[in-house]
Design a protein around this nucleic acid. Structure first.
Lengths: 227, 227
DNA sequence: ATAAAAAAATCGAACGTTCGTTCTTTTTTT
DNA sequence: AAAAAAAGAACGAACGTTCGATTTTTTTAT
């Protein structure tokens, strides 16, 4: 699998995500027609992501959001019940979306080495197509409420445990060797995270997503052999 | 070197840092007596760091800062000229402090393998004693102005280049082997960063700073041998 | 050594601005 | 014509900041 194959296999478009938001939250959205709601939601999410990444969610005012999205105040408030609710929607919907695709990509059985590569590639490619959302999601953890923060932490640990399990499986079959499965998984996660947290660095160096994925897989494989 | 040795060798106390702030910025600080200024600065920096880490610098109001530090509004404004200036002081002073200690730790010549270990340990131990500074510094990059952001990026790249140089040196002497020096250095940096960005995770798992440093050094060494 | 004077430090009420939010009106679609 | 969607002016709350009053500390004069 490479980035092209990934993009063809999975639909990670803003439209699909906003359509899901409309269906799961048609109780708080005062707009009736799906097409209208999706059109507005797309403008809002796009603007909110851009502004949040640029200046932070807290520093973004709803008047900024108005200008960037081209919608009026009343129109914004017909799509969400308040600024806090908007943050909640963005966080939760994004999280569910990512978890769904990760689970789908890893559902079919495979040898540990293949599975590890699959998990790494899926995560990197996902964070490439949804880079702003990944960045936003991590940087705005602070602004979340207690319950929300708990869910974010659970999600982080769940992703990590996916790698921990693959590593342990590989240890059993004898293909991997390491000191500590969960510490090793944490290192893998840290290197995955760098791709979307330091995107500017890799862009400047002209390192493309497949370069990074290929390199990372080889790098990790070297660290997973007998000392 | 371990964490204990590090702590004895370097003074990373808030008092020392605040004293440096007073000396380098006695033009904007309206307080004359050093002892008074340092006492107030310590209260301010401590409170500002705690609040920023908890809810973000932007979400922290000066009334929050008043309550947390125990100082009045007038007293706050006698130590800095405004909220923006406070952010600037915290960022710049922290950056200089870290750079100074990193440079000091690496000034004496050593074989690449030792030098790599030294750089890794120094960075991890520094980010342990100054954890909130490191976390704050990374998370508030967005709130900085253009010039400030540029300096932060330069600082990031400078730290990375320290590792790049060590790696290239080791490649020459034949002790290291890797595909790409700057990509490898980026991975090392990513794993160093995880220690202060995900401190809660390692605390919960009871992984202490020396455990992390020891593990990371062995992990990286494995990834730096012939494939 | 003590009282008076000067300087330094602290305090918090008040100001103008901007924020999130509400709500009535207008426009567009059905 | 009725229903849905879009618009933006208006409101109270909270923000960063200012500034004269007050307290504390230091210096000076006796």
């Amino acid at each position: 699998m490479n980035f092209e194959t990934f993009k063809k296999k999975y639909d990670t478009s803003m439209e699909r995500m906003c359509r899901e938001i409309f269906h799961s939250r048609n109780d708080t959205i005062r707009i009736k027609k799906e097409e209208t709601a999706v059109k507005n939601l797309m403008a809002i999410m796009d603007a909110a992501l851009n502004l949040s990444v640029k200046k932070g969610f807290d520093a973004m005012s709803l008047r900024d959001l108005q200008a960037e999205s081209g919608l009026s105040m009343g129109c914004l408030y017909s799509c969400f019940s308040g600024k806090e609710a908007l943050l909640h929607i963005m966080q939760e919907q994004g999280r569910n979306f990512v978890m769904g695709i990760m689970a789908e990509a890893l559902k079919e059985p495979a040898p540990p080495e293949k599975k590890l590569e699959m998990a790494i590639r899926t995560h990197i490619y996902l964070s490439e197509t949804m880079q702003k959302w990944f960045y936003f999601s991590y940087m705005e953890t602070k602004n979340m409420g207690r319950d929300e923060a708990k869910k974010a932490i659970e999600s982080e640990l769940l992703t990590e445990s996916v790698f921990t399990e693959i590593l342990k499986e590989g240890e059993k079959t004898g293909i991997f060797s390491f000191e500590d499965a969960s510490l090793t998984a944490a290192m893998v996660k840290a290197m995955l995270q760098d791709w979307y947290l330091k995107r500017w660095k890799y862009k400047k160096r002209q390192i493309h997503v497949d370069d990074y994925a290929d390199f990372l897989i080889r790098f990790i494989r070297k660290a997973l052999v007998q000392p």
